[in-house]
Amino acid sequence: MNKTSFVDSSVKMAPVAGSTATVSRDKRETVGDIRVDHPRVRCNNVNVYYGDKHAIHNINLDVGNNEIIALIGPSGCGKTTFLRCLNRMNDTIKGCRVEGEILMEGQNINAREVDVVPLRARVGMVFQKPNPFPKSIFENVAFGPRIHGLAQGKADLEEIVVTSLQKAGLWTEVKDRLEEPGTGLSGGQQQRLCIARTIAVQPEVILMDEPCSALDPIATAKIEELMAELREQYSICIVTHSMQQAARVSQRTAFFHLGDLIEVGETEQIFVAPTHQLTEDYITGRFG
């Protein structure tokens, strides 16, 4: 069944010159270091079902402190699905069921009784398509602090908005037009506005689902720069379809394939010396 997706798997392919891959394509268990010391998030045996469809199988993975971990893999392999487990956004999808344990500070956030409202304040999310509210720039950033009651008074709220916009690298561009609609900004600015909105509630982890896929290269470069700075305070989990981007921004990389986590490791190792044959196939562009 899983053979259908990759080309010529029936034909024995001669290993590419300099190939480091030692694990055969048929092996579905994760290779590499899935664990880190003092993880921010630890996933144990996470399975997701959409109705009867088993979308991701038995994922074990840690997200470390102050690290950027990139999730890569061909489309439909379950990267978004996994990402959305971490802040329970899959709850909003009808018929979606998440099994397994997702630990943050020892607490299983996937337990039914966990309140998702504070969880989503701890684990923020930036979506694939920039989705600012159709309100003013100020209101966009102020929304989170306001509903969570984080600001004491107006001045405090303004301060939060300003620092969030500064951290998101948007302040100089919008400081004179905070009252204008957020939807009137350019695509890249909108995405940075969404990042500002996310960090305004001071999350511990930021999830980013292909945040640059709708952006031009210059806007992409700005966001990547921003991520490098944000890493000092937050852990970032980013899904990307650009291997260059993964290589540029992340410290660790996880490679997914057809719902399985195939290989995890230091980004450099994954891109220079992948262990699994499938990983190598993917990063050398043999499929995907």
Partner: peptide, 22 residues
């Protein structure tokens, strides 16, 4: 658009806040 709901839920708005505010 569902993206508006996701945006609000994503920063931790409760379903009622999402509906009434956005």
């Amino acid at each position: 658009p569902p993206s508006i709901r996701e945006a609000a839920l994503g920063v931790g708005a409760s379903p009622l806040q999402t509906v009434t505010l956005h």
